[in-house]
Design a protein around this nucleic acid. Structure first.
Lengths: 233, 233
DNA sequence: TATCTTTGCGTTATTACGACACAAAGATAG
DNA sequence: CTATCTTTGTGTCGTAATAACGCAAAGATA
């Protein structure tokens, strides 16, 4: 039985999808969430979560919806990345994809990823297998964007729990940027922005001095941004 | 007579277009190329040049094609900007547009713009009228991108003739960034990059000292980029 | 009480940057 | 021929940002 094709147009149209590169930070490693494809094409291969644009939503809403459907994650940092439109990028036919990248506080969602019927898994960036479609390329571009952006916008905090220590923050930066930073200079730069709230409480139970907890002062950042302040590491 | 609708799909699909913000620099002013719409919707209003994606081209190719068809301009700097997909952005129906911005050496194309059947015109940024569709928003975002990018990538040269003087280059930066720069510090920063080729020839026929001609050393920039060099003004 | 590891705070040398002074070039006016 | 005018081209100098590094304090263990 042939499927009904009820939506007709004067000129041919590509299908439009969104794909999302979801970054998380855990165990000192930058990770990305991938989904194992259950159907052809690329059955059994890992791919970025994504899906088709519906007629009553824009691509931002589509990306958030797909993300929620496939992982249960809501209300996270998400930003448009790039639109991929090569003629042969999908063997099923002409598909244009608007890609996004998202940052997840992994501490909040550790349990839910993989709960879904679909097989979802966090991969350390260095251990990502060959992906379906042109998703390797999308991931590479997302990574470059993240590396560029984390230096001059305070998006790193989106990857950490609400409360974090300076060594944790530095580990995050070192993992994302793949370079070593001087502990004392990093500390000074971050604290001089006055964007961290000091909780005057330290990590306990370690065999050495525990670091103090901080959290990011979002309100103050917005104030300062409006006055022309620029975050930079 | 109803038009034939011969392209049918199982699910509804948006139309996909590209729109392009074309910047030029002339007479000390940053300008943008607009096209007067000859048909509804927004008949008589000014809009960004653009058109529908064809099935045998990607959006980059589409943007370049449309640009050539409407203005005769070829082989210029062009870069994807952002994809706009709000449900109501086009009164004719669901249209997703992949926007681009382009930089033109106006000196090369002064004559051709406006040659076309369509009415094309260069507008100084400060004198752009209210545009059709959401093109105001696209222009605003393009301008922000240009302002951000010109500071850390040598794209300003794409707006100048092959040979230019340092005062001309500075005028360009001041027009784009809308701020005054110190002549001597600007000079030092630019020359210290060693990316300019000195032609040892000066502007003649002025009632004062003429500035020396330079041109941008594209090869050297690519060399240096690969070694991790970063341009910055 | 000594030891060990990590955090937290400081200093110093070097470099980058902004503000500014002044000479040189090329034309014009007397 | 000389004075003048405008713009280009070069140098200096004080301040601010940055990188490199020393050392004490905290918190646990032996």
């Amino acid at each position: 039985m042939e499927s009904q094709k009820t939506y007709c147009y004067e000129y041919p149209r590509p299908a439009v999808t969104t794909d999302c590169v979801i970054f998380g930070f855990d165990n000192g490693e930058l990770k990305v969430l991938l989904i194992e494809r259950g159907i052809d094409p690329f059955k059994g291969r890992w791919a970025l979560p994504g899906g088709f644009l519906q007629m009553d939503e824009n691509t931002d809403q589509c990306a958030r919806r797909e993300l929620f459907e496939e992982t249960g994650i809501e209300n996270l940092f998400i930003e448009q990345l790039y639109t991929f439109s090569d003629v042969d990028r999908d063997p099923r036919g002409r598909v244009v994809t608007v890609s996004y990248y998202a940052l997840v506080k992994l501490s909040d969602y550790k349990l839910q990823a993989g709960d879904d019927a679909k097989n979802a898994q966090w991969f350390p960036i260095s251990k990502v297998p060959a992906l379906a479609f042109d998703h390797d390329r999308i991931l590479r571009i997302a990574l470059n964007r993240l590396r560029g952006k984390i230096r001059y916008q305070p998006i790193g905090f989106e990857l950490l729990p609400e409360r974090f220590t300076l060594p944790e923050l530095q580990n995050l930066y070192e993992a994302v940027l793949e370079m070593q930073l001087d502990r004392r200079n990093f500390r000074r730069k971050i604290l001089d922005t006055e964007l961290l709230i000091d909780h005057n409480e330290s990590v306990k139970g370690l065999p050495h001095k525990g670091a103090k907890y901080f959290s990011f002062n979002k309100n103050k950042y917005q104030e300062l941004s409006e006055k022309g302040f620029n975050f930079e590491i």
